[in-house]
Computed example of a mutant assay.
Amino acid sequence: MTMTNDTAARHRAPQQGPRQRNSLTAGQMPGWTWMAVLAGALVVAAGLTALVGAGGFSWVGWLVLSAVLYVAGMYVTTLVVENRRRATDGFWRNLVWAAFILALIPLLSVIWTVLANGLPTLIETPQLLWRDMQGVTGADDIATVEEGAPLAGGFLHGLVGTLMITLLATVISVPIGLLTSIYLVEYGRGGWFSRSIVFFVDVMTGIPSIVAGLFAFALMELVITSILGEGPRQLQMVKMGLSAAIALSVLMIPVVVRSTEEMLRVVPNELREASYALGVRKWRTIFKVVLPTAMSGIASGVTLAIARVTGETAPILVTAGYAATVNWNPFGEWMTALPVYIYRQLMNPTAPAAGLPSAERAWAAALVLIVIVMLLNLAARIIAKAFAPKKTGR
């Protein structure tokens, strides 16, 4: 009877009002708080930028000031509504996001600039992709500007040169970098020789690209003059695709070594020990167990190294020269790569009095070069996923 009376009393108790918040959500900010703070930061930053800016409204200053005001506003709001611990946590989270967005702005600006200047040229004159600069003179560019003639020339020779030089550099760099990493991980054991290799690899990682070009030029000059003797003709023979490939390999090898070394160290030692327990020799264990396990990271690192050297200008300018026609032979004659082609079109226009056609060709070539680098980075992701160890049901 007592339990029945208690139950009836609870039913007769007044219900909680709709305005009383749940204990689980008490002391928490509403979900729309960040939008309100962001809107206020944008408005206040726009007003301050318009008042302080002497040369007019600055979009960059507005974005930077908005980010600062947003981070500060969210910290104060969280501190007042919730507590200091959550305010500090939100402050650092918002600071990281603001830094990421600010770092992304220059990248998006570059991509937008190249697209805005290069894409219309490629759409209007797609023949730039399969023509070179053979026979193109300043009169052609002047006719394009004054008479509206079609844009002459193209950058096929730059595409071919970039392909051949990068391919040859990859053939040189990957075996050297792969074998060096295998020695450091599997045979070096932290000895003085392996420590010396690691030191020099770290030094090579930070050398300027122009130094790599000068090294390759001096090396090929020494080889050619020792075989054919000294002379102006021998000096001109130094500039070819092979010299540029050697320069790029100097930049690629440390990247391949470091990425491959890290991937080999990730392979569990239990796999090696299991192979040794079955009587398999060490070299066969490396090539049949260790390398296949780490192949995903190795392939990704090699692809990223190729993308890193594809856009190099200074070493190729020193070692490969400049040619106006397509050259498929990297072991003779001068060769042009896309970065060098862009540089020459901007610095030395075909018609100095009418530089617009040269600039249009340069922007179109820059867009193609960016697309190539982006595709290489995408290929690295696909290769890493394709070669990743597959999980089985057991």
Rank of each mutant, 00 (worst) to 15 (best):
G40W: 02
T88Q: 12
L65M: 13
S66Q: 00
V81E: 12
Q127N: 13
S66N: 00
L159P: 06
V136Y: 06
F57T: 08
S58M: 09
P126F: 03
V60E: 15
G90Q: 13
W112E: 10
T88N: 08
G154Q: 02
L102Y: 05
G73M: 03
V80D: 14
L104N: 08
G153E: 09
V60C: 09
V145K: 06
A149Y: 13
P120G: 08
V76M: 12
L156Y: 10
V96H: 11
G61K: 00
L128W: 03
L51M: 13
F91E: 02
V44C: 08
R131W: 12
V76P: 04
G161S: 04
G56Y: 09
T77H: 07
V80R: 05
V110P: 03
A87Y: 08
L167F: 06
V71Y: 02
I165Q: 01
I172Y: 14
T166Y: 10
W97T: 14
V160L: 04
G161P: 03
V44S: 05
G55C: 15
G161F: 11
L107Q: 05
W62V: 01
V81I: 14
L102E: 01
T113C: 09
T170A: 15
Q134T: 15
V171G: 11
A45P: 07
V68L: 05
A46N: 04
A143S: 07
S58W: 01
L48Y: 07
A67I: 00
A54F: 15
W92D: 14
L104Q: 08
D132E: 12
